[in-house]
């Protein structure tokens, strides 16, 4: 069964494209709300989620006019720190996480020329430690998420050569667990979000041979619960964001058909706020930009016809953006 055909099933709700774009547009305006103040420290990630969501829906230009685009880009510019890193918001310390967000936003708007590549590469490469792992900033927190962020950003900038990729991949491999999944550090419990970052990092590093595809694929497939949604760990509740973390990993492994995609799509669509737009973690919860993006991105991986821009499961960017940048696509096999 082709993926798109599943969305023609009579019981499938429609994706509220207009409403979601309006939701994202509203979220980028409401600078004076409490939520805005509370999320200031990860504004760059928020922008990436929102921009990427409307991009995949083919509505980038309709959602953000030229002036708004420029406003967003200069905001990103102003998040840059002296050492080449980007903070989550203006005045916030630089961090690997938000440095990737910045690169992704510039890539989405085709404005990579605004980046001081050498400075960013300098920062990211200085974050790698002697065992191959990456710290998030100079305070020393180590997490496999940071490895992914650094490798992804460096690859987007065409500068993977600046770090020891083999060592980085070997470190990721040391975080592998008996269930085939990966944790944040050696010994850490497998977690679907962490699995995405580790599989993504290994894909970028060309070391997917470290992954036991059948074992991990099975563990990921078991994340699907009765109601169709996916959870992040065994015996936990489903959450829309895992639609992305789990499905993108399965996609890289070429095994998205190991779950019931129609049931997952139905779950995501049930989490839409059909009136005011946005997608929430579970049905009837409050929507936010984060779940809106990961819900749409999950639908994109399943070939939902309304998500007009196919998305790359490794870089979490539209394939057309990567093509424009001359980066070979990483989706494999049946996924």
């Amino acid at each position: 069964m082709s993926a798109a055909k599943e969305f023609e099933l009579p019981s499938m709700p429609t994706l509220c494209v207009d409403e979601h774009c309006a939701f994202v547009a509203r979220a980028s305006e409401s600078a004076d709300t409490l939520e805005h103040a509370l999320t200031e420290h990860l504004r760059l990630s928020g922008i990436y989620w929102g921009v990427c969501a409307v991009y995949t829906l083919g509505r980038l230009d309709r959602t953000f006019d030229r002036a708004k685009k420029e406003e967003i880009l200069s905001y990103v510019d102003s998040c840059r720190n002296e050492n080449g890193s980007y903070g989550g918001g203006v005045g916030h310390d630089g961090h690997v996480l938000y440095t990737l967000s910045a690169v992704q936003i510039y890539a989405l708007f085709d404005e990579l020329s605004r980046i001081d590549v050498e400075a960013v590469v300098g920062f990211l490469s200085s974050m790698q430690l002697s065992n191959g792992s990456f710290q998030g900033d100079h305070w020393g927190e180590i997490d496999t998420r940071f490895t992914y962020c650094a490798l992804s950003a460096l690859r987007l900038l065409g500068r993977l050569d600046a770090v020891d990729v083999d060592k980085a991949c070997a470190y990721i491999n040391s975080c592998k667990n008996f269930d085939g999944g990966f944790g944040a550090e050696p010994g850490g419990e497998s977690h679907a979000g962490q699995v995405f970052t580790c599989v993504g990092a290994l894909a970028i590093g060309g070391r997917l041979d470290y992954v036991d595809g059948d074992l991990l694929g099975w563990w990921l497939a078991e994340r699907q619960v009765k109601v169709g949604g996916l959870n992040g760990r065994p015996e936990k509740l489903p959450d829309v964001c895992y639609s992305w973390w789990v499905l993108s990993s399965l996609s890289v492994l070429g095994k998205t058909h190991w779950i019931d995609r129609a049931a997952l799509a139905r779950f995501i669509l049930k989490c839409q706020d059909e009136k005011s737009g946005g997608i929430s973690d579970r049905p009837d919860d409050e929507p936010d930009v984060y779940h809106t993006f990961f819900g749409i991105a999950g639908l994109a991986l399943m070939g939902h016809p309304a998500v007009v821009e196919p998305i790359d499961p490794v870089f979490a960017l539209p394939k057309s953006v990567l093509r424009r940048m001359g980066i070979e696509l990483s989706g494999t096999g049946k996924g």
Binding site: A221, Q224, I259
Partner: peptide, 11 residues
Amino acid sequence: DPARVGYYRDV
């Protein structure tokens, strides 16, 4: 367990 029928077929 029809949701994971793809897995059972592949293995």
